[in-house]
Amino acid sequence: MRINCPICGERDSREFHYRGSAKLLDRPAPDAGAEAFYDYVYIRENPTGLNRELWFHDSGCRSWIVAERNVTTHEFFKTELAVDAKRGAK
């Protein structure tokens, strides 16, 4: 599998560590309460189509990357740096 690192370009997926849903970008405010943190830490959409997810280029440039990938065909549609996705989300 190949992942297009926004900085290093296309690389073999063995250089990356998969973390999971990109919902981890949106950590609740400290005072958001137990329910919000339960949802953030434990609940997952787990779609069968497009999944927005977090990868870490750990034996490359050590960037955290937000990818959009179809989890049935494994096709990647878009990758961007997590710091940019976060800024975009603001």
Binding site: S13, Y18, G20, T48, V71, T72, T73, H74
Partner: peptide, 13 residues
């Protein structure tokens, strides 16, 4: 394989 998947197949690493 460590990433979400419904493909019933994996990769080489």
């Amino acid at each position: 394989d460590m990433y979400n998947s419904y493909a019933q197949r994996g990769n080489l690493p």
